[in-house]
Design a protein around this nucleic acid. Structure first.
Lengths: 242, 242
DNA sequence: TAGTGGTCTAGACCACCGA
DNA sequence: CGGTGGTCTAGACCACTAG
């Protein structure tokens, strides 16, 4: 995975940037990098484009490629680890707190039409419905309801489901969950939210809902997360042209 | 801008997807598209990659390229127009509603240390503080407080500020705002939120705060937006590997 | 004008999927 | 096995920036 040429270059450049090896905030030009690393310019462009998408650098035609000074400050609660991304909880900043899971529900159900479409299911496919309360140091912060096609992981058990499913997949099947399409919103808290997450009636929940995909593109899980509002902080770098 | 080959292809494919011209949720393979559109496969890959980055499609090696069903039911309020992105309001879905602005405050103030850092200001730089209520068809949906260095647009006036600043920049100076770092969160509504946005005490606001950059990378504005919670729906497609 | 990033082509080879 | 997307190369030409 990481032996791909553009990945190596990506990593090398990121390391050098973080190590402060470009004190003038400017990277070498693409043709020089192509020579230095002995790769084609296209591959250099690929690596640089990814860095630009990540907001690490920005490119100015006719001038060069520059480091984005703002890249350093990152206080997002929802973030991504490099490489070994295992499990949703790993996508949340933990600050040394111990993540926990309390299983609320574990059933096999028939998916409704919408879910069927979202997960590309056939007529007679069934899904697990998994409802879990997630905690940091015994403090609940999220109610998560997930739907996973049984045909993808027919061996799922209460035991597996009581810890990280993503971890399990990575460990046992060497399949990583690497993509997700999420909708972020907020709502007033329901009675259940208030009870489970320790909220007052005026305190809201943040909502993140959407589909997680396996590395190969297979839609793997539809998940609906209701977060204690103080735990929902999502950072995003956006480029506003298509 | 839009006469680039990969942009045309991108637009064409997006149109066809939205028009439902791929009822089996599968696009033609890359080599076929390359022939049909008489462009190289690399260009096809480029267009498809962008679609994949946007979460419109996902690709499965060995199988094909498939349409993301969640994209078709895209009801995001915050989204981006192709090409002519002008102004924040243009980034919100309007559905034929007329956007309006009510100016609440327009001052020149001394930035606090944090703001100074976020906008890369020097010690004696001042900023405009612009507080505006934004409406759809006379219905308020967002309280926006923005901070803009006076040195960037010393000619700012109440008149300009009462409509779209981004529009003004584009029109008068041909400078586009194309990038932003935003943090998305939620909070209980304050008394002011409730009064201005017509919320009950149990209804929250969505918060989007961060920096907007000019095309050349100059940090242009720090903005804090408090949205009526029903208007905050943010779609995001994430890849969890670096 | 020289240097930079942007676009595009043509083609090679690899890795994965499903019949 | 044939078909698919993934990676990479080599090189051409364009568009913008700066001195």
């Amino acid at each position: 995975m990481a032996d791909l040429v553009y990945r190596q270059l990506l990593g090398s450049l990121k390391d050098k940037i973080l190590a402060g090896e470009f004190p003038n905030m400017k990277l070498p030009d693409e043709r020089s990098l192509s020579e230095q690393y002995e790769v084609s310019r296209s591959t250099v462009k690929r690596a640089l484009s990814i860095l630009a998408d990540q907001g690490v650098v920005f490119k100015k035609r006719g001038s060069g490629t520059f480091i984005n000074p703002l890249y350093l400050k990152n206080d997002s609660v929802f973030h991504y680890n490099n490489g070994s991304n295992l499990g949703i909880t790993d996508s949340f900043q933990m600050n040394g707190r111990k993540p926990g899971i309390k299983l609320l529900k574990f059933e096999v159900v028939r998916p409704d039409p919408e879910l069927k479409r979202d997960l590309f299911l056939k007529n007679d496919d069934f899904v697990y419905e998994i409802k879990r309360l997630r905690l940091f140091d015994d403090e609940p912060f999220m109610i998560e309801t997930g739907y996973i096609p049984i045909k993808i992981v027919p061996e799922l058990s209460e035991k597996i489901v009581s810890s990280s499913i993503f971890n399990y997949l990575q460990r046992e099947r060497n399949q990583a969950v690497t993509k997700s399409y999420l909708t972020i919103s907020a709502e007033p808290s329901t009675d259940e939210d208030q009870a489970q997450l320790g909220l007052t009636p005026t305190e809201p929940v943040g909502i993140m809902a959407g589909v997680f995909f396996l590395d190969d593109g297979t839609p793997f899980e539809y998940s609906r997360m209701r977060l204690h509002y103080r735990y929902m902080k999502y950072n995003t770098f956006v480029t506003l042209d298509d």
